[in-house]
Design a protein around this nucleic acid. Structure first.
Length: 245
DNA sequence: GTTGAGCGTT
């Protein structure tokens, strides 16, 4: 995939993962490798891609062999403009249990880095991160009731990227694509619901009828049902009629 | 062709 010929996680035992955010969707691992390799030994560069679309999610993981090199890369590449966009480089945590992971490197790494960071520089990109979080908090403040459900859902759901896609980003395309996919799946095993697809197709005229007029709607439905049966006595074929209209 | 908060593949 996005690896250098290897499958699966190479070796997180003695590697330090860096999270690169705010990268362009066109940026690939090959583009980030030379950039990060200049500041240290990069063992692997991985860019998570969407399972469905296969496009980059806009962030990447760069694994360094040594923490000092990783820190240097963070200090140098964090805030650097790549492909016309300012990237954010920070140490990555391997999942919610990252800190629980054999405290081998990550924890020790964080401790050492925090100490060095304080002595050297208070995170050049701290303002960016704060800005993002601030905006996020403002959004959450607008909808606290849903926030509880959101947090609870995310807490119980182990699928991070999925919940992130549904709760965080509007993602019209993803939602729409996924919705269609589910709709197709739901329609296939339910031939008796063939009346639904036509209804969806004629959603506009149906809304014009308004549900307030129950008898009218009933008659229309009956009339349409009769016409449908008269038109297609055997196979219903919702798509066929959709094409006809 | 598009988008933009975030934490990853066997």
């Amino acid at each position: 995939m996005s690896h250098f010929g290897r499958a699966g996680p190479p070796d997180i035992r003695d590697t330090y993962s860096l999270l690169v955010l705010n990268i362009t969707f066109r940026t690939t691992a090959d583009d980030l490798f030379p950039l990060f390799d200049k500041y240290g030994k990069v063992v692997d560069v991985f860019i998570p891609r969407d399972r469905r679309t296969g496009d980059s999610r806009g962030f990447a993981f760069v694994r360094y062999k040594y923490a000092d090199e990783a820190q240097k890369a963070v200090d140098k590449l964090d805030g650097r403009v790549v492909d016309g966009r300012e990237i954010m480089v920070q140490f990555a945590k391997y999942g919610p249990d990252a800190e629980r992971i054999h405290k081998g490197r990550i924890v020790e790494l964080v401790e050492k880095l925090k100490g060095r960071s304080r002595s050297r520089s208070p995170r050049p990109s701290s303002r960016y991160r704060d800005d993002h979080r601030d905006r996020d908090y403002r959004r959450r403040d607008c909808s606290r009731s849903q926030d509880r459900y959101d947090e609870r859902y995310r807490g119980r759901d182990r699928d991070r990227y999925r919940s992130r896609s549904r709760s965080r980003s509007p993602d019209y395309r993803r939602e729409r694509r996924r919705g269609r996919y589910d709709d197709d799946k739901g329609r296939s095993p339910s031939p008796n619901r063939s009346v639904s697809p036509p209804s969806r197709g004629s959603a506009s005229p149906r809304k014009s009828v308004s549900p307030r007029r129950s008898p009218s709607r009933s008659r229309i439905l009956v009339a349409r049902d009769e016409k449908e049966r008269s038109t297609t006595p055997k196979s219903v074929s919702p798509r066929g009629r959709s094409d006809s209209q």
